[in-house]
Design a binder for these strands. Structure first.
Lengths: 358, 358
DNA sequence: CAAAGCGGGTCTTTTTTTGTCCCATTTTTC
DNA sequence: GAAAAATGGGACAAAAAAAGACCCGCTTTG
C-alpha cells in the first residue's frame, strides 16, 4: 500500500469532489440510457427537488454535455464521449478497480467487473451491468458452442445490451432451465431467443408449464424433443445467469409464506436457475422443473458469467460463486462493497458514510 | 493530441474543480512557507475577505491538513506530505507538464521547469522556484568546479532554498559580477557567500564600489587580487542567474529617466548580470563593472540555470535564453504561459479567463 | 384533438456565504 | 516586565446563492 495514489490526495484536499463527479456522472448516465428525458422525470428518478436538478442540468448544458429540446434532454456527442471515457477513471477514482482486485483474490474467480452505482438506488446500473456482461460474453464466444442463459432481470439486461454485431458461426442459445413462472420479458426462454437474434445464432427453447409434479416431469423426460433440448442445455460451454435472493423469489414468484419459512429454515440464502443454496453453497432445495444439472456445469462449462447487483444480493452472491476458476463476475458497486464487508467480517451496516457511491 | 487525458474530462464534467484545488493548494503552500501564520494575515496576503478564507481554513482543518494554535496556523505532517505529493499532480492537471515540453522545444534548451502560480500575485512562488532551481543546481555539481551566481531576488531565493546537505568537494562559488548596487540580501556577493556556506564550499567575492568610471575600472583590472577573482569567475562551469526587465532595473537601481529612455531607444528588454539585451538577444548596453564575459560563458559554462518568474518577465526571458543546449530554465506559471503566448504570436492579453492559475 | 410532458420563467422562502465587528488570550516587541 | 500586536473564536446582520413551488406556452404523443 505504498503506491502513491493521486486520488487520495485530491479527496483529502477537496472532499467534495467525489460527490460532484458522481452526481453529474449519474445524471449523464441516466440521460444516456433514457433520453429523451425531461427535467421533472429526472428529478423524480433521483428523488431530488426539481430546482436542484435544474442547476446541475444548467452547468452540464453550459459545458456542452447535454442538449435540451422540447422532447427532453439528450447527451451531445461530447457528452456521450465523456461518459464513455470518464467511466474507467471514475472506477479507479472511487476505488472500484482495487475493489475488483480484492474480490478476485477473495472469491478466487477468473474475473471481476464492478460497475459504479447501486442497482437498488439507480436502475440504469442494471443496464450498465448488462453491457459489461455482454462485452465479456462476446469475448468468450467460440464457433459451434452452446450458450445457456437463465432468466431474471439481470440476464434480460445482458440481452438488451448485447450489440447486434457479427458473432462466431454455429452458436446455439438455450435457456438454462425450462419456464420458471416470470413475466415474459425476463423468462429464460425469451432471453435466450433475444440473445440468439442479436448473435445471429440458432436457439432451442424449453417451454414447460409451471409447477409440475414429479411424476409429470418424469413422463416429459421420456419425450424425445425434450430429451434432446435437455442434452443440449447440459452440453453448454458458457452459462450466463443471475442470482436471486430467497426474499426475491418469494416476492416475484408465487411462493407461499409457509414454503418460504421452510426455505429459510433450511438456510437458503440464494437461488440460481431453480436451485436454492445455503450460505455454504450447498443445494438445500429446488424448484421442480427441467434444465441444467449442476454436475454438468462443473464438467462441461468453460465460462460461467454471473450477473448480479444490489447490496441485498451480497450474501447470495457469496454463497453461489467462489472458488471456481470458470466464474466471471459482473457486479455493481453496492453488491461489491457489501461482499467485501461480509468477507472481511464487518457484518454491520456501518462505515458507509465515508464512501461516496454512484 | 489523441492522448486521452482524464484531466480534461474531469474539468469538462466539473469545471469548478481546478479552482477549488488551486485555491486550497495556494493556501497550504503559503502556510508551508510562512508558518506560523494568522488568519487575518493570510486573508490580507491573498486579498480576500477574512470570512471566506476562514471557511477554507475550516475545511482544511477538518481534513487534518493544518493545525491551529495561538501562534497561528501550521501544516500538519499530513498537510506537508500532501503539498509535496500533490504538486506533480497539480502541474500535470493544470497543463504545466505539457507547457514544459512545449517550451523545451520552442526555446531549444536542455530543461524547463514550470512552477505553479504567478510570482506577481503570490510571493511564495519565488521560493518554490528557488527550491526547484536549487534541486537542479545540486544535480549539476561536480567536484572542483567553479560556480558563478548573479544577484537579484530569484538567485537569493535559490540560496535560501538550497539544503545544507553535503555536496561535492572543492567547489568554489563566485559572484557573476562585482557589486551592482542592490540591497545586500540580493547582491551577488552576499548570495555567493550564502550558497558557499550551504554547499560547504569555498568562495571568493568581488566587492566594488558602484558606478565606477571606465578609467577606474581599467586601473582595478591591473590589481592582482581582482585579476585573480575575475579569472575565476570566467572559468565557471555553472552559472546561475536571474533576469531583469528594463523597467525593473530602472526602479530598483538608480537609473535616471533619461538613461532609461536611452535604453528603451536601443531596444533593451532584458538584463542579465549587468548586460542589457534587445529582443534579439544582442547586447545593446552594459552597466559599467567587472565580471563574467559573455564569450567565456559560451566557451566554458556547461550549465546555465536561469531563474525568472512573473508574466512581465516573459519578453526578457525570450530575449535572453534560447537556442543554448546549456540552458536550464526555472520559470513560474505566469511567465511560462505568457512566453507561450508571445512565441505563438498571441501578443494580446486575452484568453486568460479559461485558465485557472495558481 | 386532447392529454401529457417538455423547458423556461418567476415568485417567495430557506439556506449558505460573506462582511464586520468584538473578545479573551497568547505572543512578540520594546 | 509592560505594552503592543497578533492570534483564534464567537456572534450577528447583510448579502447572495440555492431551493421550493408554482405557472405558462409549447411540442409531442396517443
Amino acid at each position: 500500500m505504498m503506491v502513491s495514489d493521486n486520488h487520495e490526495d485530491i479527496v483529502l484536499l477537496a472532499p467534495e469532489i467525489p460527490e460532484i463527479l458522481v452526481r453529474r456522472y449519474k445524471i449523464l448516465r441516466k440521460i444516456y440510457y433514457s433520453s429523451p428525458l425531461g427535467r421533472r422525470s429526472l428529478a423524480a428518478y433521483f428523488q431530488v427537488g426539481e430546482r436542484v436538478l435544474r442547476r446541475e442540468i444548467e452547468t452540464l448544458r453550459e459545458q456542452g454535455l447535454i442538449s435540451v429540446s422540447s422532447k427532453g434532454m439528450f447527451l451531445t456527442a461530447s457528452g456521450k464521449s465523456l461518459v464513455a471515457s470518464i467511466t474507467p477513471f471514475l472506477k479507479s477514482f472511487l476505488g472500484l478497480t482495487v475493489l475488483e482486485e480484492k474480490l478476485l483474490k477473495l472469491l478466487k474467480v477468473k474475473r471481476v467487473i464492478v460497475v459504479p452505482g447501486d442497482l437498488e438506488q439507480d436502475e440504469v446500473v442494471l443496464l450498465e451491468m448488462g453491457r459489461a456482461a455482454a462485452r465479456i460474453l462476446r469475448e468468450c464466444l467460440v464457433p459451434g458452442m452452446v450458450l445457456a442463459i437463465s432468466g431474471g432481470m439481470s440476464c434480460a439486461a445482458v440481452a438488451d445490451m448485447l450489440p447486434e454485431a457479427g458473432a462466431p458461426q454455429g452458436i446455439t442459445v438455450v435457456p438454462a432451465r425450462g419456464g420458471l413462472g416470470e413475466v415474459v420479458d425476463s423468462q429464460a426462454n425469451t432471453i435466450a431467443a433475444r440473445v440468439a437474434k442479436k448473435l445471429k445464432a440458432s436457439y432451442r427453447l424449453l417451454h414447460l408449464p409451471d409447477s409440475l409434479s414429479q411424476e409429470a416431469l418424469q413422463v416429459l423426460l421420456r419425450e424425445k424433443n425434450i430429451k434432446e433440448i435437455l442434452d443440449l442445455i447440459n452440453s453448454a460451454r458458457i452459462l450466463v445467469h443471475g442470482i436471486g435472493t430467497a426474499e426475491e423469489m418469494a416476492r416475484r414468484r408465487g411462493v407461499s409464506a409457509e414454503e418460504m419459512q421452510r426455505l429459510r429454515d433450511k438456510g437458503a440464502v440464494g437461488e440460481v436457475f431453480g436451485l436454492f443454496l445455503n450460505s455454504k453453497g450447498e443445494i438445500v432445495d429446488r424448484i421442480p422443473g427441467l434444465g441444467l444439472y449442476l454436475e454438468n456445469l462443473s464438467r462441461k462449462a468453460h465460462h460461467v458469467i454471473v450477473v448480479a447487483g444490489g447490496r441485498q444480493k451480497a450474501d447470495a452472491i457469496v454463497a453461489v460463486v467462489g472458488n471456481h476458476q470458470r466464474d466471471l463476475l459482473v457486479l455493481d458497486e453496492g453488491a461489491a462493497r457489501r461482499i467485501l464487508e461480509v468477507l472481511e467480517g464487518f457484518g454491520g451496516e456501518g462505515n458507509r458514510d465515508t464512501i461516496v457511491s454512484v
